[in-house]
Structures are given as structure tokens and as C-alpha cells.
Simulated scan of single mutants.
Amino acid sequence: MNKQVSITPDGVEDPHEAESRRRLVYPIEQGPKVGEGVDVAPGVKWIRMPLGGSLAFINVWAIVEEGGWAIVDTGLNSEASMQAWRKAFAGVLQSKPVTRVFITHMHPDHIGMAGWLTRKFNCRLWISRLEFLMCRSLAADTGREAPPDALEFYRAAGWDQEALDTYRSRFGGFGRALHALPDSFQRMRDGDEIAIGGHAWRVVVGSGHTPEHVCLWCPELKLLISGDQVLPKITSNVSVFPTEPAADPLDDWLTSLARIKTIVPDNVLVLPAHNEPFHGLHARIDALIGGHERRLTHLRAEIAEPKRAVDVFHVLFRRKIDGNNVGMATGESLAHLNCLMARGQAVRRRDERGVDWYQAA
């Protein structure tokens, strides 16, 4: 999946981000074990679903309402997730049914079990329109061969033949991480107010990580379910993909973060999809924006001489980039390079082999 990464410039701890993390407060001392739950507010429970890999789990949220539980995010489609949900229903959820399933965005660790839950309990999926349609589109690639446009895209980024062959062999894997999606949904729009568990929750949409990412804010409970839009310890991946090679998702990301800061007050408890609930929303948003701006500055200095997308990984990533995460690293590098071009700070030239070279303007 490779959708999250902690990134710092030049492989060194960013002192600005380190200071911002010290300003965050984590009020819940002990998080739940997988399939178990912890109360975070009256009628709101924090449950963990297993992921494996560098991200061991995803946080999902259960909100009590008349007739059962509204669930926010679902975990990856896997036998381990299914067993964890069965454990939760037998334990913390007290054998009560699911009334609705809310999805923050279309990545498999968030929506993977939505089809299983909605069918099991004959309930409705709530999601933004773009997230639903994008998820359906990616799931439809299952079993397809990698399209020529995608191979050209990654060849232009500087991939060698071995990397392209690996991409071919793995193409279409997105749908295998999903239980079959429901065929209909209830749309969530930015600014909507939804009654959940006797409280009004406002839909706050962000973009950049995905096209129409939903956060849910409850002013009365002072809670913000942030999904992957704001995470306390890691930075959500912001990537360019072959389907829209000229996109500028980093500008979308930075703009939407700044907007969320003007809408949601700083006194909320943030309930993120990964890591622990925290206080300090505005400080974390400032750090995320500032961190990306510093990386753009580092990147512009790096491309004083022409570079390919694969040549700038060391500017953006602390971890080693290999065959398991080169797609994510390439997408994020292109997001930063496209942002520099959109700002008039870089230019791109394609050589006779079809490879793109970037240079500071």
C-alpha cells in the first residue's frame, strides 16, 4: 500500500517538526489492543484494526446511536481484520449492529471492509462522491495489464526496466485489498451537518492525499476525526499518479490544510487514522505546511543542475527507497516538482529517450 511516510529533508531530523511534535499533547495514556476499544468521549470509542508492516494498525471509530453503532473507517480487507471485527462485536461493541458506515477516503485500509460491514448489517455507506468513484475506478483495474500511459509515466520519471517490469507484475493490486464495494452510497459534501449519536457532526473536506477526503468535526464534543488529513507523527503521502500526470496535489494539500485551520478550532481532540489522539491541531497543521515548504526550498536548490524525479529521493525521504516503496517515492517527488513548476520555480525538459529532467528556473 505504501501510502504513508515520515519524511525529513536530507535524511536529518527536521528541528522545526521535532519542536512541533513536542507541543502536541496525547491525553489517552493507553490505546486499545487490536479488536478492543477505549472511550475517547461520551459514546465514542477508539478501536484498532490490524495492518502489519511499518503501520501496525489503523484507528477506526465507533459512535453509539439509536439502534447500534455508526462506524468511521473499517480497516483493510483481510482475514485478520475480519477476526478483529468479530472480536470487537463480541466485546466492546456489545453485539449491537452497525447502523451506518462512514468512510474518510478511498484507501484500502480505510474502506477495505466497508462492503463486508454494510452487507452484514444491511446498512448504508456514507462517503464523498469523488472518493467513491475513484475507489470504484481503481478497483476496476484488477486483472488488467499495466496501460502504456502508466509505463511511459514511470519511464519519464527515470525508472529502469527492472522497476517497470515489477510495476507490470503488481499492477491491479488495489482491488484485492477491498471487500466488494456496495453498489450505492450516501454522499457527504463539504459543510454538511450530519446527526450522529445525538450530536451534529460537520463534514470538512480536504484534498491532496486523496481528491475529496472527509473529516468529521463535532463542535459539541470537541472532536475531529481527521482520517489521514492530519496525523501527529507521520506525514501523509501526497503523490502524482499516471492518471493525471500534470496534477498539483501538493498545492491542494497545503491549501486545504490552511483552510481546515480557519474552520476547526484548536481546542478539539484530534482522532487520527494512525498514531494516537492528540491536542494541538493548529500547531500540527503549521508544522505540516512548514515542512513541505522547506522541502520545496531544499528541492529547488537540488535541481540547480538538471535532475530526474528518481534523483531527488534523498531530499525528501529519510527511509531507504527500494522496490517496495519506489512508486510512493516517485509520486511524492513528482508532486513537489510539479508544485515548483506551477509556481514558476522550475522547468521540465524531456530528452530523446522520453525521460524528464527538472531544473530550477
Rank of each mutant, 00 (worst) to 15 (best):
R318M: 11
R318T: 14
R319F: 09
R319I: 11
R319W: 07
R319N: 10
R319K: 10
R319Y: 09
K320P: 01
K320C: 10
K320A: 14
K320D: 15
I321A: 05
I321M: 07
I321W: 03
I321F: 06
I321Q: 05
I321V: 15
D322S: 12
G323K: 08
G323H: 12
G323V: 05
G323T: 10
N324W: 10
N324E: 15
N324P: 04
N325S: 11
N325C: 11
N325T: 11
N325Y: 04
N325A: 07
V326D: 04
V326Q: 04
V326H: 01
V326G: 00
V326M: 08
G327Y: 04
G327L: 02
G327F: 03
G327T: 00
M328Y: 06
A329R: 08
A329D: 04
A329T: 07
A329H: 07
T330A: 02
T330V: 10
T330H: 00
T330Y: 02
T330I: 03
T330M: 06
G331F: 03
G331V: 01
G331Q: 01
G331H: 01
G331I: 05
E332S: 11
E332V: 12
E332Y: 06
E332G: 06
E332L: 07
S333A: 15
S333P: 02
L334Q: 10
L334H: 12
L334Y: 12
L334R: 15
A335E: 03
A335K: 01
A335H: 04
H336K: 03
H336W: 03
L337Y: 02
L337K: 02
L337V: 02
N338K: 03
N338L: 04
C339T: 14
C339Y: 08
M341Q: 14
M341R: 15
M341D: 05
A342D: 07
A342F: 05
A342C: 02
A342P: 00
R343A: 13
R343L: 11
R343P: 07
G344L: 12
G344A: 13
G344V: 11
G344F: 12
G344I: 12
Q345C: 09
Q345G: 00
Q345P: 05
Q345R: 15
A346C: 09
A346G: 05
V347H: 14
V347F: 08
R348S: 12
R348T: 12
R348Q: 15
R349G: 11
R349N: 13
R349D: 14
R349H: 15
R349P: 06
